[in-house]
Amino acid sequence: MDITFDHVSFTYQAGTPFEGDGLKDVSATIKDGSYTAIIGHTGSGKSTLLQHLNALLKPTAGTVSIGDFQITSETSNKNLKPLRQKVGMVFQFAENQLFEQTVAKDIAFGPKNFGVPEDEALALAKRMVELVGLPQSVLEQSPFDLSGGQMRRVAIAGVLAMQPEVLVLDEPTAGLDPAGRAEMMAMFAKLHDTEHLTIVLVTHQMDDVADYADHVLVMAQGALIKQGTPREVFADTDWLRANSLGLPKTAAMAERLAQRGFHFDPLPLTAEELATQLLPQIGGGAHE
C-alpha cells in the first residue's frame, strides 16, 4: 500500500499553539514495503505530516492517497476506521496511551474497535506480546506495574495487534537508555523484514536513519526540502550543515578522514562499511 502526498498543504487554525507549524505544498511517496525516515527539527512539520498518514488531520489543500483511500479537505470524518486499521501509529511516549486493567486487554483494545471478536483479539494479544519481545507472563499483569520500556512495548503491541500494513513510529526510542534503544530498533527492523510492514520512522537519530532506512524525507518549516536514499541525503555534508541537521557518526568520521587524505566511494554509512573501505588504505591486508 503506497502513501502518496500530492501538493499537500495544511494550515492550523489561527490562535492555536501550533500556528505556523503547518505543511507547505508537500509532494512525496512512501512506497509499499519501504523503510522511510522523516527527519527535521522540532517544529519542522514532521508531526503534522505524520498525522496526515491516517487522516487524524486532513489537508487544507491537495490530496493524500493511502492505498485506495483519497483524503482531501472535503473528506468526511466518517468511514475513516478501515483506513486507521491499515496505518498503525506509535506516538511519542506511546506508553501514555495504556489504560486497561491487564496488558492482554489493552493490546486487544485496538482490534476490538475494528470489529475483531474478543477471543480472537485476546489471541492476537498473545502473539503480539511475543513479537515485541515480552514474556507471556505480562499478559495478565496491569500495564502500570511494568517498567517504562516494557510499557512502551505493550503500547507498540497494541498497535501491531490491529494488523496494520504500515507502522508509523514517532521517535519510538525517546527516553530509553542505549541498550533499550538498540533493542527497540532491532525489533522494528525485524518487523520490517519478517512481517513485511512498511515502516515510517520519525527520528532525530541520524545513526538510526543510516542503519535502517532506505528512503529519507527531510522537512524544514513545513516544506519537504530534500528526499532520497540515506546515502544521497547524507552525501551533501555542507548542505546538511547549512540546514543544521546532524550527520550520522560514520559519515562525520569519513568526512574527517577524507580531509586528512583518505578516499571513500560510496559514502560509508555504518562503522562496518567504513572499516571495510579503510582496510586497503591502511594496508589491512599486509597485517594478515
Binding site: 560514520t250 567504513l274 572499516a275 582496510l279 589491512g284
Partner: peptide, 10 residues
C-alpha cells in the same frame, strides 16, 4: 570503529 577494524585483523 576500532572494534570493526580489529575484527578485520587490523
Amino acid at each position: 570503529l576500532k572494534a570493526a577494524l580489529t575484527a578485520r585483523g587490523v
